[in-house]
Structures are given as C-alpha cells and as structure tokens.
C-alpha cells in the first residue's frame, strides 16, 4: 500500500521508490514544446528518476486522450499567435489547417515514442471502480475522477500540478498519495 498524503516535490530532486501515475499536465510540461517552457521542474525530476530501480511510471487512456487534446489546443494557440489571428476559435481557425494535421500526427508520435516508452499502462478500470466514479463522484471533472479511481484501483501515487486534486484530497484524505511542485493549498 502506498503512503497516503500530499507531498511537495523539490526541484532537481529524485523520486523515492514507488509507482507513479503521471497526470496530463505533467506530460504537457515534459513534451509539449509550448508548455514545456513553463515547466517548474518536472522534466528534470521525471527523467532523472526514470532509470532508478524501484521507480515506475504509469499512464492510462484517459490521460493519453487528454494529452493529445491539450497538445493540439496548445498548438492552436501558438498557431494563432504566429499568424496574428484575432478572436481565435479553435474549431473555426485551426482544425482545418495543415498545421493541425501535422500536430495531430506528431501528438500520436509523442504518445508512441515518448509516453509509452517512459510509462507502463495502468490496468483498465474494473466495472466497480467505473461505477464508483459514476455513483460517487468526488471531482467535478469526470476525467479527473477516472484518473483518481485508476490510482485507487491500481495503488498508484499521482504526480500532478492540478490544484483541484489537492482540494479533493483535503476533503478525502484516503485518496491516493499526491506529489507536486506546485502549491499544496
């Protein structure tokens, strides 16, 4: 059983032994060429811990799906900036572009070459845990709820920069252990 609690990570530190589910925002800081520039230090922690015996990273299909979507949205923002598009609208101004098509292909390559080489896939949610997400939602975002239930089912720690998780954790202390470089409150 993993240790419960919310833990502050420190820049340039290494993770202690354990199984870690990396949240979508962590992959964006690692891999998205736009958002990586805002990385408070997760890239160094994750990649420096990657080869440590006893440290294992996990991902699930909800996180992968969200990552691809966010990666495309971020590229759309960058496209709008580069092309000085005022009142930018993702679907209207970006979805039909060559840039979108190339970024979509690139996002899939990131999943194949970077995410799935760094991480194991966590075991899919059993029906009971899925029903728990439906019948007893704690997060206000269903995808977040699925990620939390994944961590509970598979006994994984969560590394995230999303403060919504910590608010949830403060109400439900028995949720999985969470690690972050961000503010805890």
């Amino acid at each position: 059983m993993n240790q419960l609690g919310t833990f502050k990570l420190h820049k340039n530190s290494k993770l202690k032994n354990g199984n870690y589910l990396l949240d979508t925002n962590i992959f964006l800081y690692l891999l998205d060429d736009i958002q990586q520039k805002n990385d408070p230090g997760y890239s160094d922690i994750i990649y420096e811990s990657n080869n440590l015996e006893g440290v294992n990273f996990f991902v699930d299909i909800y996180i992968i799906s969200e990552f691809i979507n966010r990666n495309l949205r971020n590229s759309g923002y960058a496209y709008a900036k580069k092309n000085n598009i005022s009142k930018y609208n993702y679907k209207r101004d970006y979805r039909s572009t060559v840039d979108f098509e190339e970024t979509y292909e690139y996002s899939l390559d990131l999943v194949k070459n970077d995410i799935l080489t760094l991480c194991n896939m966590s075991k899919s949610l059993d029906r009971d845990y899925l029903m728990g997400a439906i019948d007893n939602p704690q997060a206000k975002d269903f995808n977040d709820q699925l990620i939390i239930n994944d961590a509970v089912q598979n006994d994984l720690n969560i590394i995230t920069h999303d403060r919504d998780y910590f608010k949830l954790k403060s109400i439900n202390p028995d949720l999985p252990a969470m690690y972050t470089l961000g503010k805890l409150k």
């Binding site: 736009i34 958002q35 520039k37 805002n38 949205r73 971020n74 759309g76 923002y77 960058a78 900036k81 580069k82 993702y90």
Partner: peptide, 11 residues
C-alpha cells in the same frame, strides 16, 4: 512563442 499556463488553460 511564449504562452502562460493561465492563457493555455483558458481553453
């Protein structure tokens, strides 16, 4: 291109 987290998370 530099875009803040706040701006990126707006969408």
């Amino acid at each position: 291109i530099k875009i803040s987290d706040e701006e990126l998370n707006e969408g």
